[in-house]
Amino acid sequence: MGGPSGPMLSGQIAPICDQSIGPEGPPTGVSLRISRAVFRRASPAQCPWTHLRNNRAGPKDPPGVAPQRNQGMRAPITAKGALRLRAELEELKSVKRPAVINAIAEARAHGDLKENAEYHAAREQQGFIEGRIKQLEAELSHAQIIDTSTLNAGSKVVFGANVELADTETDEEKRYQIVGDLEADIKLGLIAISSPVARALIGKNEGDTVVIEAPGGTREYEIVGVSYEG
């Protein structure tokens, strides 16, 4: 069944908009084909729901939440993490880069490069250093630096939070800080905001329990403390 066209358009818009289309958009079922034909061509003055043509939530968007678009979003990083990474960048550029250049020059002086293990090791190290420099420069130039000491989230877990967890079975306690992906270091208790643990914690409050998928299996933890420090 085709949609109305020509002179029938204005006559068909009013009853569909007034009676058939609710706030959620065109009705479902057989009438959907007719409604969409009119719905697509109606102006905002004719049909108040026409704005939904370009702003309807996709299948993965929660009800009532507009679709999210990634338009140059800046990755968050803590102020302390930014200082640490800038110090690493400075060391790479002023100390390690010159050192590996000297090592390559010395290895060249030993003759045949095909069998020169020192030369190849130095070149490999140079590649790593240059790659890390480029990564740090790019990430830091586009990062959104957040001073976590100024956050006022109370007992709620958001980016930058220091979270104390207690295993509900063993009472073993862990402490993590949720940080940017680039500054994450599990040995220091710094977990990336994109990690499964951080995703399970974000939005929770002190006193809540969370279930976390760990390499050793599923564990349940109670959030016993949430704090924000510089």
Rank of each mutant, 00 (worst) to 15 (best):
V100L: 05
Q135L: 15
K93M: 06
Q126M: 13
I104L: 06
R132S: 10
Q125L: 11
A99C: 07
E130F: 03
A138D: 14
N116A: 08
E91K: 14
E137G: 14
V95N: 11
I133G: 03
A153D: 12
D147H: 09
S141C: 02
D112F: 05
A87S: 15
L92Y: 01
G127H: 03
L113G: 09
H120P: 01
R97C: 04
P98Y: 13
A117W: 02
A103G: 06
E137S: 13
K96D: 09
R108W: 07
G131D: 08
E90C: 09
G111C: 07
L92V: 02
S149P: 05
H142W: 03
P98F: 12
G131E: 04
G131M: 07
H110E: 15
T148M: 10
A153N: 13
N102M: 12
A143T: 06
H110M: 15
G127K: 06
V95T: 10
E115F: 06
A105L: 10
A153W: 08
E124L: 08
A103I: 03
G131H: 02
N116W: 04
E88T: 15
F128T: 12
E137L: 15
E91M: 11
A107E: 01
G131K: 07
I104G: 04
A99M: 08
R97K: 15
L92D: 00
E91T: 12
V100G: 03
N116L: 02
A109D: 11
R97F: 10
D147L: 06
P98K: 14
R132M: 07
Q144A: 11
T148I: 08
E137I: 13
Q144S: 08
E137M: 14
E115M: 08
L151Q: 09
A107D: 04
A107R: 05
R86P: 08
D112H: 05
R86S: 14
I145P: 03
H120E: 12
A153H: 11
A109H: 06
E115Y: 07
R97P: 01
A143I: 00
A138R: 14
V95K: 12
S94F: 02
G127R: 04
T150F: 12
A138S: 15
V95A: 12
T150Y: 12
G131S: 10
L136R: 02
E106D: 09
A117C: 01
A103R: 02
E130P: 01
A109V: 00
A122Q: 06
E118A: 13
Q144C: 00
R108E: 14
E106S: 10
A107P: 01
Q125I: 00
E106L: 06
D147C: 04
D112M: 09
I146R: 06
H142Y: 08
A122F: 03
E88D: 15
Y119T: 05
L136Y: 01
A138L: 12
Y119H: 11
A105C: 00
Q135W: 04
E88S: 15
I104Q: 05
E90P: 01
E118C: 03
A87H: 14
E137K: 13
H120Y: 09
N116V: 05
V100I: 07
L136I: 11
H120V: 06
I129S: 08
R97Y: 13
L113M: 13
Q144K: 13
A138P: 00
I129H: 03
H110G: 00
D112S: 05
I129Y: 04
Q126S: 10
S141E: 07
T150H: 13
K93A: 04
L89G: 10
E90M: 12
I145H: 07
